[in-house]
């Protein structure tokens, strides 16, 4: 009987195993192997180069630029989207007329596909007739071309990410806020504790597990969400919005240098693993699970 249960268990797991191995583990291993070879072309076979592809990265100005851009992009979008989503959650974690309408409004960007969002924002940013420029013009400011100038393009792209992500994270914070017992609030009120102190000493520690979850997601998204780069800038102007993942796509599927793209992918995964694991270890001491 016991052994039959084992067979059942394995059979149940089999479909998931097959898909995981075929589409996740096998490709990951082949990517690692490919990164040590040169790209095969029709007339030239792949040759072993050892760390050649990794050495090439150090001398590749666009890779360096992509790394710097990704760092800036992460440093902006992660804290900004977390702060904004928490603020929005606090705002709608009350009952007043139209609160569900407000929650829905905050959540809407999450439902929209990023490609569509990017196209809409492109028109917000459009110089001359775009929404932002019309506001600027109303106040007598000169026209600005946000996505078309290298010094503002990255921030313009980051703003779209924050706008898109905040609503999604808000849902998690809202759920966390609703688990805080009302009795704590009453107790704090009796002790004469102010709203800010309550937030800092009670609310914030209690929603730490959610904050950790959200911040891990925000980190992953900072490297993963590049759909709008395709629509808005294609990495330009002059690589100003070149992010690591977009560079991998471009190298792999536009330049067809698949071996170099494999090496870049390994670097991306290494960064993500280190950051992800580090986050759990560092934050673990400050997170109180029930």
């Amino acid at each position: 009987m016991n052994s039959r249960n084992w067979i059942y268990a394995w059979l149940m797991l089999l479909p998931a195993f097959v898909f995981l191995i075929a589409f996740t583990h096998l490709p990951a291993v082949t990517t690692l192997i490919d990164s040590f070879f040169t790209t095969a072309k029709g007339r030239r076979a792949a040759a072993f180069t050892g760390l050649g592809n990794y050495q090439k990265m150090l001398g590749d100005p666009i890779f360096v630029k992509a790394m710097v851009n990704s760092a800036i992009y992460a440093a902006i979008t992660i804290p900004a989207s977390i702060a904004l989503s928490l603020a929005m959650a606090l705002l709608v974690h009350r009952s007043f007329r139209g609160v569900s309408l407000m929650r829905m409004a905050f959540f809407t960007p999450t439902v929209l596909p990023l490609i569509a969002v990017a196209n809409i924002w492109l028109f917000f940013y459009a110089p001359g007739f775009g929404l932002i420029d019309q506001i600027r013009l109303y106040f007598g400011l000169p026209s600005a071309n946000y996505v078309g100038q290298p010094d503002t393009a990255l921030y313009a792209v980051a703003a779209v990410t924050i706008w898109k992500e905040a609503g999604f994270f808000m849902i998690f914070f809202l759920a966390a806020l609703q688990t805080i017992p009302q009795s704590l609030r009453e107790a704090a009120a009796i002790e004469g504790c102010g709203r800010w102190t309550f937030f800092r000493r009670v609310t914030l520690p209690l929603i730490m597990p959610t904050t950790l979850f959200v911040s891990v997601n925000a980190v992953i998204n900072a490297f993963r969400l590049v759909d709008h780069v395709f629509v808005m800038t294609k990495g330009g102007p002059d690589s100003a919005t070149m992010l690591l993942l977009y560079y991998i796509f471009e190298t792999g599927f536009r330049f067809w240098d698949t071996a170099y793209a494999a090496a870049l992918t390994v670097v991306l995964i290494a960064i993500l693993s280190v950051v992800g694991i580090g986050q759990f270890f560092l934050a673990d001491r400050r997170v109180h699970y029930k």
């Binding site: 028109f123 459009a126 110089p127 001359g128 007739f129 996505v147 078309g148 100038q149």
Partner: peptide
């Protein structure tokens, strides 16, 4: 001409709106 990079997608729109 407006400075900076000008978007392809917005070009017909700029024409229709009388921006260019």
């Amino acid at each position: 001409m407006a400075p900076g990079i000008l978007d392809w997608g917005g070009t017909p729109k700029a024409f229709f709106e009388g921006q260019a």
